[in-house]
Amino acid sequence: QIFVKTLTGKTITLEVEPSDTIENVKAKIQDKEGIPPDQQRLIFAGKQLEDGRTLSDYNIQKESTLHLVL
């Protein structure tokens, strides 16, 4: 699982696999929060994550925290 922290300070927990794409993660966030993926920007280690890449591409491991910017 990974954590996604929103600007409001809320933390969302997501069940993911390293092979999941960023697009996939955004879809999971939409399921939980109702935020359309095209409004979501995910930041990890100061980098904006691209939809077509996977979590493992960015070396995002379990218990990692991503930041969600709208």
Score class of each variant (00 low, 15 high):
1 Q>V: 15
1 Q>E: 10
2 I>V: 06
2 I>C: 02
2 I>K: 01
2 I>S: 01
2 I>L: 08
2 I>Q: 01
3 F>M: 06
3 F>W: 06
3 F>G: 03
4 V>Y: 02
4 V>P: 01
6 T>A: 06
6 T>D: 07
6 T>V: 10
6 T>P: 04
6 T>E: 04
7 L>E: 15
7 L>W: 15
8 T>I: 08
8 T>C: 15
9 G>W: 03
9 G>A: 04
9 G>Y: 03
10 K>P: 06
11 T>P: 04
12 I>K: 01
12 I>F: 11
13 T>I: 13
13 T>G: 05
13 T>K: 08
14 L>R: 00
14 L>C: 04
14 L>V: 09
14 L>Y: 02
15 E>Q: 12
15 E>D: 13
15 E>H: 12
16 V>H: 05
16 V>K: 01
16 V>Q: 02
17 E>Q: 11
18 P>Q: 09
18 P>N: 07
19 S>K: 08
19 S>Y: 12
19 S>E: 11
19 S>H: 12
19 S>A: 08
20 D>G: 03
20 D>T: 09
20 D>Y: 07
20 D>H: 06
22 I>P: 02
23 E>D: 08
23 E>K: 12
23 E>C: 14
24 N>L: 13
25 V>A: 02
25 V>Y: 01
26 K>Q: 02
26 K>F: 03
27 A>D: 07
28 K>M: 15
28 K>T: 03
29 I>S: 01
29 I>M: 03
29 I>A: 01
30 Q>E: 10
30 Q>Y: 15
30 Q>H: 14
30 Q>V: 04
31 D>R: 12
31 D>Y: 10
31 D>F: 12
31 D>V: 14
32 K>M: 11
32 K>G: 04
32 K>N: 05
32 K>D: 03
32 K>P: 02
33 E>A: 10
33 E>K: 04
34 G>Y: 04
35 I>S: 04
35 I>C: 06
35 I>F: 11
36 P>G: 05
38 D>R: 11
38 D>E: 12
39 Q>T: 08
39 Q>W: 10
39 Q>P: 02
40 Q>C: 08
40 Q>A: 05
41 R>M: 12
41 R>G: 06
43 I>T: 09
43 I>G: 03
44 F>A: 03
44 F>S: 04
45 A>V: 06
46 G>Q: 05
46 G>W: 04
46 G>E: 06
46 G>P: 01
47 K>N: 12
47 K>T: 13
48 Q>S: 11
49 L>K: 00
50 E>Q: 09
50 E>G: 04
50 E>C: 11
51 D>Y: 04
51 D>T: 06
52 G>I: 07
52 G>Q: 11
54 T>E: 04
54 T>R: 12
55 L>Q: 00
55 L>G: 01
55 L>K: 00
58 Y>V: 03
58 Y>C: 05
59 N>R: 06
60 I>F: 03
61 Q>C: 09
61 Q>K: 12
61 Q>L: 11
63 E>Y: 11
63 E>F: 12
64 S>M: 11
65 T>W: 08
65 T>I: 13
65 T>F: 07
65 T>E: 08
67 H>Q: 11
67 H>Y: 13
67 H>L: 13
67 H>G: 05
67 H>F: 13
67 H>K: 07
68 L>V: 05
68 L>P: 00
70 L>K: 07
70 L>H: 12
